[in-house]
Design a protein around this nucleic acid. Structure first.
Lengths: 88, 88
DNA sequence: CTGCTATTTAGAAAAATTTCTAAATAATAT
DNA sequence: ATATTATTTAGAAATTTTTCTAAATAGCAG
């Protein structure tokens, strides 16, 4: 995991909101997009960044692409943060 | 605390390295700068962003300004991350 | 007060990010 | 095979971020 990518990915409010949506349930790209006032192309761009950071994973079904959280990377970020606090 | 500012602050590698330096000890702006190949003005810019995000605090002594970590904001970030994982 | 050191602020250039439109893929359905 | 729907890719414009140089501020020290 590359912290650079992970933190950059989480630094954008749209992407954090996507993470929160996916916390509740797996969603298709289109369903995610319906929560924002942006084109599908822009949502696709944000999804690609979360994917590169391995914060989400995708699975294809019919002609939909479903996205879900990958909590293990979230955990690694938390570990880095916890070392800042001195608990290690 | 504003997550936007906090995550943005942590999204830059220079600023994360500053956080790691300050994890060990309080340092002056100049001492922090000596770890990077950048002008003091640039370091000052990065410090200002960490300060706005309340990730660090400053105290003045003589004509030095010393910086230290503020771990309570680090903890709030960890809390947000933990809700993603579903532990709450 | 004058000079010296530490740091910040201002303004501009360079680089990276975000967003859009238009076109391309991919998969399904008729 | 053609049409339709879902999504991504490419390229460009707009915005934001990072960095620098030069100038300003702040606090000693002599």
């Amino acid at each position: 995991m590359a912290f650079a990518e992970t933190f950059k990915a989480l630094s954008d409010p749209v992407r954090r909101k996507i993470m929160e949506l996916l916390k509740k349930e797996t969603l298709s790209a289109g369903e995610i997009g319906s929560h924002f006032d942006m084109t599908g192309a822009t949502i696709s761009y944000h999804l690609s960044i979360l994917k590169k950071a391995e914060l989400i994973t995708e699975t294809r079904q019919k002609n939909y692409i479903y996205y879900s959280l990958n909590t293990s990377v979230v955990e690694e970020v938390m570990l880095w943060l916890s070392t800042l606090k001195g608990d290690n």
